[in-house]
C-alpha cells in the first residue's frame, strides 16, 4: 500500500476512528484532523473513512461541503475569495469571477495547476459598501472592475507578494 497522498504522509484512519469512537460529532472531529493534516480532505481518504465508520460517502460530503472550513481541493499558495453575497452579485461579482476563471483556467473551488491560486466563492465578506469585493489571502479589494484584475493579481503571479 502506498503511504502517501499527494505528497503527504497518510493519516491513520482506523486509529482516528478508534480515538473518536462513540463520541458525539465524531465525524466532524475526524474530518478536522484530516483537514489539518492534508490541508484538505482528499476523496480517497473520505472513501476509506466511509468504509471504516460505515457512514455513507454522501453523508461525509454533506458535512464537508456544509462547513467552509473543510476543503476538497489542495490549497493554493494564495487564496482568491470572490464575494457572491447579494450586493456583490448585483454589482458584478459574477463578472469578476468569470474573468478570473478565464485568466487562470480554473473553476471555483479549484486550485490552478501550478498550485499558485486557489479560487473560492464566499457569501459575504462584511463590507457590502465596497461591492463587488474580493479578497486575496486576507487582503480586501473593493469596487473591483474586471479590467483592474490584471494589476491586482500580477504581483502575486510575479512572486512579489
Amino acid at each position: 500500500m502506498d503511504t502517501q497522498v499527494n505528497g503527504n504522509t497518510k493519516v491513520d484512519i482506523k486509529g482516528l476512528a478508534e480515538k473518536w469512537k462513540g463520541k458525539r460529532g465524531n465525524l466532524i472531529m475526524i474530518l478536522h484532523e484530516i483537514q489539518n493534516h492534508y490541508g484538505y480532505v482528499p476523496r480517497e481518504v473520505s472513501l476509506q473513512l466511509s468504509e471504516v465508520l460505515d457512514v455513507p460517502l454522501a453523508r461525509i460530503y454533506e458535512v464537508i461541503t456544509f462547513y467552509n472550513f473543510f476543503k476538497l481541493e489542495p490549497p493554493g499558495k494564495h487564496t482568491i475569495s470572490v464575494c457572491m453575497g447579494t450586493a456583490c452579485y448585483l454589482k458584478g461579482g459574477a463578472k469578476l469571477l468569470d474573468e478570473i476563471k478565464n485568466m487562470f483556467a480554473v473553476e471555483e473551488g479549484q486550485t490552478t495547476k501550478d498550485g499558485l491560486f486557489h479560487l473560492q466563492v464566499v457569501r459575504c465578506l462584511g463590507c457590502c459598501g465596497l461591492a463587488p469585493v474580493m479578497m486575496i489571502d486576507g487582503k480586501i479589494f473593493g469596487k473591483v472592475k474586471p479590467d483592474e484584475l490584471m494589476n491586482i493579481l500580477s504581483p502575486y503571479v510575479k512572486g512579489e507578494v
Partner: peptide, 18 residues
C-alpha cells in the same frame, strides 16, 4: 445515499457526493 445536499445557503444543490 446516492443523492445529497451539498453546500448551504444559496449554493445548496442536489448532487451525488463530490
Amino acid at each position: 445515499w446516492a443523492l445529497s445536499f451539498l453546500e448551504r445557503g444559496f449554493q445548496t444543490r442536489i448532487s451525488p457526493a463530490g
